[in-house]
Write a protein that binds this DNA or RNA. Structure first.
Lengths: 336, 336
DNA sequence: TGGTTAATTGAGAGCGCTTTCAAAATATTG
DNA sequence: CAATATTTTGAAAGCGCTCTCAATTAACCA
């Protein structure tokens, strides 16, 4: 409130309120056993002086920094054009702000940096817990983190056998919905642009196949092609698909769907008349595409929210066993 | 290296190396006057034990946390689909990683949150310095931060009279280049989709006008319309422009240019034959647009890099007076 | 070789907070 | 009302590090 000439300390506040430093600490931390009259007096001084406790000192004494780290491994480069992270960060910060946590960002630009910085993450006591984006299947960071006793939550399902905590979206179900939608449209020459770099890609492929099985539809192996979630890869993948004359394509990501869309348009074909197209993600640009892209919406911000909440519970010891949270997805019908 | 059963402290290392805690601290912090033999012995122990100093304790003792904050005021919501921030963050983390700083993210979701959290930013000793994105002209955070003695650097030019440190791109020059390009193309019925919500918009408008003046070209006031940097606003703005029959449009942001592009296409006009279009930003999607968008490229990552470097210098007291860094932009010729 | 000066090291006092432990104050009971 | 149980408070010991200051040791010169 008032401009402070000098940094105030607990002792200063105590002196002003006529109590000991310990008592001030207690009212700040909402301890139960304090005379209401004393509590009030101390609080008055705190407000009047505009005192704010030194977080670093609090951290040292309590062995808890209140800082959690968001780790984005070095695959970022490929992902830099993807608003996914902005939404995730948005959800995360919303929640950290609400529960008084601080968010520190760990973005690695090389394998080397990843290894280097990991050590300082685990050992320096700066960070209470970690939210880690499970981008690739082969993520060395995954192995590192589970060997230490720092609490962590993955966003996305990592590729490991041991049970750990993560939040994820219903990828299998989403892909199932996509395929089912195409089938219900009467299409029978289904194709998929998949991606096997990450578990999300695997799960989406699985859901797609499941739907085909359930509806007793065969898929020509030629109609299964691969991309890497990028627009360019979707474009290229679609080229490979043309000779197989598909009448419906499911792309495991919106970016790939957008790439495919471009290839289809350039081939002089009409969406959805000649080829129906379904993506996965529901990025903002998908709604703006021409024609607007039918896709599977995943609640990215909720992913962030749930991740922080889960981690926070772990930090407060409220939770013992690893827990998995799967968020629902939905089919967004548009013109493709 | 080895799995630590218990957290090691400076004293432990000292005991193992047969020196005092102070000496260990000195070798960790690269102090000059230490016998090579002692330094080596201590370093050996550090490596063998895998000791990492407790950053919180270091911070408390040195009154320096090594954490800098990136503040993104609450206008973000409108900007969340904009990869600008991803690039900025990329540049920033690249540099913080390199110079051993930690990056903490402060993303506000409401005016209220902004005010609330500002206090804890300034007073809790957690953060050494701030990088602030100057999004809007009326940013209350700006006033708050300059009233405190926390070091800060703005990204983008804030709207205030007092001299402060910031990094920015040559907006005026960029817009000048854009207009000049259109003029050199032989166009004379120039129009602009501007934005007066932020200083970047102001500066770009200024550069545009400057070019018109220099080339003695009149502009019909009807051909000056406003948007808010979003695709939708560019689309709407372009509609307003059609009656004035422009043969060239400069949009103050790529997103608006993309919106305008859509409007032009839907009006059945050809880019660039009927209307030439130039944007500003060089977003990834601009290169992928159809036709690919001619635009002004701004080095967003460099903005982040320079911001961190500047702030770091301020933190190390290497710098006294506020400094401004203006990064160059370039015209990217594409098909529009 | 004794006397100076400079380089190297250790002791110890904090940094501002939390938290235990015991003392003081208050409430409860027979 | 004395004796006991219960709250409320303060003293003080850390948390793990930095950094000053003084002591020790090595280096230098006449």
């Amino acid at each position: 409130m008032n401009k402070q000439t000098k940094k105030l300390t607990l002792d200063d506040i105590g002196a002003l309120a006529g109590v000991s430093r310990a008592t001030v600490s207690r009212v700040i931390n909402d301890y139960p056993h304090i005379t209401p009259e004393v509590r009030e007096r101390v609080q008055k001084v705190i407000v009047e002086t505009g005192y704010k406790p030194n977080k670093i000192a609090q951290s040292l004494a309590s062995n808890r920094s209140g800082i959690i780290g968001l780790v984005i491994p070095h695959a970022v480069q490929t992902i830099l054009t993807n608003p996914y992270f902005l939404h995730l960060i948005n959800g995360i910060t919303q929640t950290t702000n609400a529960c008084g946590l601080n968010l520190s960002l760990f973005l690695f630009h090389s394998m080397n940096e990843e290894v280097q910085m990991a050590r300082s993450l685990f050992y320096t006591n700066l960070i209470d817990g970690l939210i880690i984006t499970a981008d690739r299947k082969e993520n060395p960071f995954v192995k590192q983190v589970i060997q230490h006793d720092i609490p962590f939550v993955f966003v996305g399902r990592p590729q490991i056998k041991v049970p750990i905590s993560y939040v994820n979206v219903a990828n299998v179900m989403g892909a199932y919905l996509a395929a089912e939608h195409l089938i219900n449209l009467g299409r029978r020459r289904l194709a998929i642009i998949m991606c096997d770099h990450n578990t999300a890609g695997d799960d989406r492929y699985k859901g797609f196949r499941q739907a085909l099985d359930d509806y007793h539809i065969e898929i020509d192996p030629q109609r299964i092609v691969r991309g890497d979630f990028s627009l360019e890869s979707g474009y290229v993948a679609m080229q490979q698909l043309f000779p197989t004359v598909p009448d419906a394509v499911f792309a495991a990501s919106d970016m790939m769907a957008l790439g495919a869309q471009r290839a289809i348009r350039q081939a002089g074909l009409i969406i959805p008349d000649d080829i129906a197209l379904v993506g996965f993600d529901d990025l903002p640009q998908s709604a703006l595409a021409e024609p607007p892209l039918t896709t599977i919406r995943q609640p990215i911000e909720d992913l962030g929210i749930e991740a922080v909440n889960l981690l926070n519970e772990m930090l407060c010891q409220k939770i013992g066993l690893p827990r998995q949270i799967i968020l629902p997805v939905e089919l967004v019908l548009r013109a493709s």
